[in-house]
Amino acid sequence: MKEPWTNEMKEQIDDIHIPEERLNRSIEVAIHRGKKERRKFPVNRFLLTASAAVVLFGLFVGSAFVSPAMASMVAKIPYLGKIVVPENGEDVVQEIADELEEKYTIMGMGVSYPEKVIRISIGGDNSYYTKVKSEVERDVKDILKKRHHDAYGVEVNRGREEVMEPTEEEKRNSQEFMTIYDELAKEADKRGIGLLQTSVDYGSRELQFEIPSNEDTEEEIKEILDGTVSSHGMDEINVSFKKINMDKRDQDKRWREILTLLQDDLLGKQEYNVRMVGYSVHPEPEIQAFLSISKKDVDAKAFAEELEKAIDEVLQSDKLSSKVKDDDYHINIYSKEDKILN
């Protein structure tokens, strides 16, 4: 069991490949509100990070050589070739969460992909749930309609609070490691040692530190840890380190923000046929788009090329160019079978 401790808010997702058959399983990721106080209820999402990049789905078509089936789909897309970036930088899920928090007793909210179902759990007793259920559903649908997002389904249910009390051993372990970490972090701060993130593995009694790759502070951290453990008469605690490239870390943050802005329109509008979104900065920034179009469709390549142009256009726009900076980036468009089309 691991519990993350961070010196600053960290929202980094490692590059991993998740097979298609696992996409239906919702992975919960806490959504924080920048420097604002954490909301009273959790917002959970499913995110996919592919091994080479992230996922970004949409359907933008402009070729004269499209099949009749695809042509009928093209006619339904309102602003062909343009991806609309939220004016205030807040995606639709965040907007829904903010509004619900102000008006209702909400226990939690989740979004699963690729199903694109927004699930809201209402707190309170059965009488309250019955009273506000339809209102909550209406408010969510109104926000989606305002943004012209018709790809999401909405489910509202009554939440049931389940409190899982930790065992006495878990309480002792947590208190012991928290004491050690607090004292170690204070001493490290005095010495100017950067600790980016620290995790604890209770099973192996190990503290796992992330530190800047340009700093050789491992031995000094070990020295502080050993002294802290000894002063409390505790059993030995193991330690491991992961070096973090700070330039890549900052680049990752920028492209994560870019993806958040890009995905809002692409995921939200049914006409775009977006399945998932994601990104990677290793070795260079890359956006991937996985279409719901089969590679067998004779017009699939044309669609992919138009989508690539649309994504590239918004990446170079005034709204995103300050985040893209001078980065060399790639855009890969994949078919329903996960084969590159462009």
Rank of each mutant, 00 (worst) to 15 (best):
T6G: 00
E8R: 15
E11P: 02
E11M: 09
I13P: 00
E20H: 07
E21R: 11
K36W: 01
R38Y: 05
F41L: 04
P42L: 01
V54Q: 11
L56F: 13
S67W: 00
M73F: 06
P78L: 02
G81S: 06
K82I: 08
E87S: 07
E101N: 06
K103F: 08
M107N: 15
G108V: 01
M109R: 01
V111C: 08
P114T: 04
E115V: 07
I122C: 10
D125I: 05
T130E: 15
T130M: 15
E137Y: 01
R138K: 13
A151K: 05
Y152I: 05
E155M: 09
E162L: 12
V163T: 09
M164I: 14
N173M: 12
E176I: 12
A188R: 02
R191G: 01
G194A: 13
L195M: 14
L196K: 09
T198M: 13
D201Q: 08
Y202F: 13
L207I: 13
E210L: 09
E215D: 09
L225S: 05
V229Q: 03
S230T: 11
H232N: 08
M234E: 07
E236W: 05
N245Q: 05
D247F: 10
K248A: 08
I258T: 05
L259V: 04
L262S: 06
L262P: 04
Q263N: 08
E271S: 13
N273R: 14
M276K: 07
Y279E: 13
I287M: 13
F290G: 05
F290Q: 12
I293M: 11
E306C: 12
E308T: 07
A310G: 03
K319Y: 01
I331Y: 04
I331W: 04
I331L: 06
I333P: 00
